[in-house]
């Protein structure tokens, strides 16, 4: 995979799914509509303020709470290129990869990376490159997860597999 490059938005610990995408918008299924409410609980008009490819860097337990896939979808369609965190809630982690938004675990990164800094994430090589040239290690994905991300998400991955079976 090519490197993911973007400007950093810093967030704290335990950023929950109700602030990432409030429950009242769960009736929306169009990801572009969901995007307009991304992180509404914390940053007003987040989708207008971010540039495509910007990277969220957060503390521990990012995405805790509900199983709503609407949460990573809203982030992705708002333009977020990846989320880096100390740790993720497990359902958010799975959902994020499944919809093609890299959820990257990097211990200690939250305390080192600065707001608005430009970083690049190198998933294949397993590190984050900071503006000043410093490399921070990331947790490597098992091969089958990396394959899903390379396909752009589980949907594309399934499309490829089912097309191979001649079932689509």
């Amino acid at each position: 995979m090519s490197a993911i490059k973007g400007k950093v938005w810093l967030f704290g610990d335990n950023i929950d799914t109700d602030v990432i995408l409030p429950g009242k918008y769960l009736v929306l299924t169009d990801p572009n509509e969901l995007a307009k409410h991304a992180l509404e609980g914390l940053v007003q008009d987040f989708y207008k303020k971010i540039s495509k490819g910007d990277i969220i860097v957060a503390g521990k337990n990012f995405g805790c709470g509900s199983s709503r896939e609407h949460a990573p979808l809203a982030l992705k369609y708002a333009g977020v290129g990846a989320v880096v965190a100390e740790s993720f809630s497990r359902i958010f982690f799975r959902n994020s990869i499944n919809i093609g938004l890299p959820a990257v675990i990097s211990k200690g990164a939250r305390g080192i990376i600065k707001e608005n800094e430009h970083i690049s994430i190198h998933l294949d090589e397993g590190y984050i490159l900071r503006e000043n040239g410093e490399k921070l290690p990331i947790e490597r994905y098992p091969d089958f997860l990396l394959e899903i991300l390379k396909d752009g998400g589980l949907l594309q991955n399934l499309k490829r597999k089912f097309a191979r079976r001649g079932e689509v």
Binding site: S67, E69, N98, G153, L154, L155
Partner: peptide, 18 residues
């Protein structure tokens, strides 16, 4: 355990999950 909607689509088709 709880899972997301996309991987549920995978479960609907295959009956399996990692």
């Amino acid at each position: 355990t709880g899972i997301g909607s996309t991987e549920m689509a995978s479960v609907f088709l295959t009956g399996e999950l990692w």
